[in-house]
Simulated scan of single mutants.
Amino acid sequence: MSTRIIIFAKAPVAGRAKTRLMSVLGAEGAARLARHMLTSTVDACLGAAIGPVELCMSPSLNHPEWADINLPLALELSHQGEGDLGCRMARAAHRALVDHGAQQVLLVGTDCPQLSPELLRHSARCLSSLDAVLHPTRDGGYALLGLRQFNPHLFTDMPWSTPQVAALTQTRLAALGWRYQRAEQLQDIDEPQDLLWLTASWVKALQTPITEASHHV
């Protein structure tokens, strides 16, 4: 079954990447972590080997912020465009399922260290008998949304970056009458206290030890 993975990512530049972590990591440290998050997520998505992998970028590829970022040739590149996160995700999901004719799409960010090739393959398999699969995060958002069909209601008028996102998405999936699965809860890395959830390889991307940085939270 044709599965397209779309990764939503900002350019990992100092002062603009992972700004909520700058209080403990500094601007450069937060940018280093953001770059490692991007690299790890891209590697996991390509390693899943379940279909095309698209990097949906902000800003666009020709912006200087991406100038020193080496991206694998296997990636398809696109621009997130204007609007809130919902508008950008809706455009990408529609493009995958309608314009590209993918049978299913997995929408992911770069903030979740648990996003592995195995988890991605499992999510794709779930969609063989479901309309949607959702991996919520501990903060109330979600790290992965898998879809077999498109409906803009899943993305419009959503209070993004709040603890209500995953629950509201489930409510809307149910209202549509779609068969869906609320899958394993994951942990994303947004706030200083989240740093304790980093995997060993992600910790190595930082010069400041996580255990010391976390004491300042």
Rank of each mutant, 00 (worst) to 15 (best):
L196M: 10
S60H: 00
L145N: 14
A96Q: 05
G141E: 13
E54I: 08
I210E: 04
D84Q: 11
T162V: 08
L71R: 06
H122L: 12
T199M: 05
R172H: 02
L176M: 08
A90L: 06
M89R: 12
E65L: 14
A48I: 10
S60F: 00
G86I: 07
L173E: 03
E184I: 08
V133K: 01
L176R: 03
H135M: 08
T3C: 11
L85E: 11
A167F: 00
M22S: 12
L106W: 05
P159S: 11
G81V: 04
Q149T: 10
K18E: 06
D43F: 00
E28R: 10
I69H: 01
A213F: 04
E191P: 03
D188H: 02
I189E: 06
P64I: 13
A96Y: 02
A48T: 12
T3F: 01
W66C: 15
T137G: 14
S214M: 11
L106I: 14
L75R: 09
L115G: 15
M158V: 12
M1W: 01
A44L: 10
V165G: 07
G109R: 06
T39V: 14
E191N: 13
A174W: 00
V105S: 08
W197R: 15
L61V: 13
L33I: 12
L107F: 10
A183Y: 00
L107M: 14
S60N: 03
S40V: 04
H122R: 14
T41F: 04
Q181I: 10
T208R: 11
A49I: 07
V53E: 11
D194S: 03
V105T: 11
I210L: 08
I7E: 04
R20K: 11
S40F: 01
Y142F: 04
M37P: 04
R95S: 10
L55D: 07
A74S: 05
P64Q: 11
D194K: 03
